[in-house]
C-alpha cells in the first residue's frame, strides 16, 4: 500500500474495530451501528448526488427495494439475506439505471421532482401490494440468530459488519474519485454539455453512477431491515429518509468521499442524543437537522469538510510559522 490516504483509512477502521470490542454499552453500540448505516447510505447517495450532480429526493425507493427484497425472500423462502441483499441491490440498480435514463434530460430541480415522485410511487405500491409486502402492517422478521440469517445477538457484530461495509464503500468511492471516471463525473456535474462535447459519455455515466448509488442504498436497506427486524412503508419509504441521506452528505460535503462520513459522525449521534435526553419534545432532532442544513447551504455551500480541513491546515500552517518565524517557509507551495 503506497497510498497514504488508504493507509490512514484502514488504520482508522482497525482502531474503530478494536474500540468496539471494548465497548459494552448498548446505547453506544446502537449509535455506532446507526452512524455507520447512515454514513454508508449517505456515501451511496453522494455517488449520484455529489459526483454526477443528480440530486435525488427518491433514494428511499432504493432503500425500500433493498429492505423488502431481502426480507420477503428470507421470510418466504428462507433465502439468506446475504444473497437477498445482492438481489435487492441488483433490482434497485436496474430500476435506477432505467429511471435515470428516462429522466436524462431533466436537470436540477426537475430531476429532484422526478425522483421524489419515484419515492412516492414506491411508497404507495408497498402499501397497496398487501399480498407481497403485507401493506402498512409491515413485515416482522423472526429473530433467529445466525450468520447466514444475518441476525445477531450482539450489537457489536452489527457494528463490525456495517463498519466493514463503510470501509469497502469508502475505498470504492475513493478509487472512483481518483480514477478518470471521477473526473468524468465531475465534468458532467459542472457542465454536462461541454463534457459530452469533449467525448465524455454523459448518459452512460449518469445512468451508471445512479445505478451504483442505488445498489449500495439497497444494501443499506437490507442491513437496516436485519438490524431492526421490522419493516413497513412508513419507516422505509418516506420522503424524510431520502432527505436524510442527502442532508448528511451535503452537511459533510458532497465533493469528497470523506464528506458523508463526517456528516454522519456529526448528525447521527447528535440526533440520537437529542432523542434520548430530551425525549419530551418530539421533533427537536429533525428541527436541528433542518437548521444545520440551512446554515450549511447558506454559509458553507461546500459542506463542513473543506471548512474543517481549512482550519486544520491553518493551524498546522501557524505551527509551521512559529517554527520558521522569518518566513523561510513557502506556505503557498505546501497548501
Amino acid at each position: 500500500m503506497r497510498d497514504k490516504k488508504v493507509c490512514i483509512i484502514i488504520l482508522a477502521y482497525t482502531v474503530l474495530m478494536i474500540a468496539i470490542s471494548l465497548v459494552g454499552n448498548n446505547f453506544l453500540l446502537d449509535m455506532v451501528v446507526l452512524t455507520g448505516l447512515w454514513a454508508f447510505a449517505a456515501q451511496a447517495w453522494n455517488i449520484a448526488g455529489g459526483y454526477s450532480g443528480q440530486f435525488s429526493l427518491g433514494h428511499c425507493a432504493f432503500f425500500g427495494i433493498g429492505a423488502y427484497t431481502s426480507s420477503i425472500l428470507y421470510c418466504n423462502t428462507g433465502l439468506s439475506p446475504w444473497v437477498g441483499m445482492l438481489i435487492g441491490g441488483v433490482i434497485a440498480a436496474i430500476v435506477a439505471a432505467v429511471y435515470s435514463g428516462i429522466c436524462n434530460k431533466l436537470k436540477g430541480h426537475f430531476f429532484a421532482l422526478a425522483t421524489l415522485a419515484l419515492g412516492q410511487i414506491m411508497y404507495i405500491a408497498s402499501v397497496q401490494l398487501t399480498s407481497i409486502t403485507k401493506g402498512s402492517v409491515g413485515i416482522n422478521i423472526p429473530f433467529k440468530p445466525g450468520f447466514l440469517n444475518m441476525i445477531f445477538n450482539s450489537r457489536a457484530t452489527y457494528a463490525y459488519i456495517i463498519l466493514t461495509f463503510v470501509l469497502l464503500l469508502t475505498l470504492f468511492t475513493y478509487f472512483i474519485q481518483k480514477s478518470k471516471y471521477g473526473y468524468f463525473l465531475y465534468a458532467i456535474r459542472d457542465n454536462e454539455r461541454a463534457a459530452i462535447s469533449l467525448g465524455v459519455r454523459g448518459l452512460q455515466l449518469k445512468m451508471g453512477s445512479f445505478a451504483v448509488s442505488a445498489f449500495f442504498t439497497a444494501i443499506a436497506g437490507t442491513f437496516y431491515a436485519q438490524y431492526i427486524l421490522f419493516i413497513d412503508p412508513d419507516s422505509l419509504l418516506v420522503l424524510f429518509l431520502a432527505v436524510q441521506m442527502a442532508i448528511i452528505a451535503i452537511i459533510g460535503g458532497t465533493g469528497s468521499y470523506l464528506g458523508p462520513l463526517l456528516g454522519s459522525v456529526i448528525l447521527i449521534p447528535l440526533s440520537m442524543l437529542l432523542r434520548a435526553k430530551i425525549n419530551f419534545v418530539s421533533g427537536l432532532d429533525n428541527l436541528i437537522y433542518g437548521l444545520i442544513l440551512m446554515a450549511v447551504v447558506l454559509f458553507l455551500p461546500d459542506g463542513l469538510l473543506p471548512f474543517i480541513l481549512k482550519i486544520f491546515k491553518n493551524r498546522t500552517g501557524k505551527k509551521a510559522m512559529e517554527k520558521y518565524p522569518k518566513g523561510e517557509l513557502n506556505l503557498d507551495a505546501k497548501v
Binding site: G49, G53, F55, L57, K107, G108, H109, A112, F240, V243, A246, I247, I250, T254, V281, S282, G283, L284, N286, L287, Y289, G290, L291, I292, L293, M294, V297, L298, P301
Partner: peptide, 27 residues
C-alpha cells in the same frame, strides 16, 4: 441569498426550511 447559487443550494435550502417549519409545528 441563494437566488444565484447552485441548484443544490436552492433545492436544499427550501428542503431545510420545510423541515424546520414542520418540526416547529410539531414541537
Amino acid at each position: 441569498r441563494i437566488i444565484n447559487s447552485s441548484d443544490m443550494a436552492q433545492i436544499f435550502l427550501t428542503v431545510g426550511l420545510g423541515l424546520v417549519l414542520s418540526n416547529l409545528a410539531l414541537i
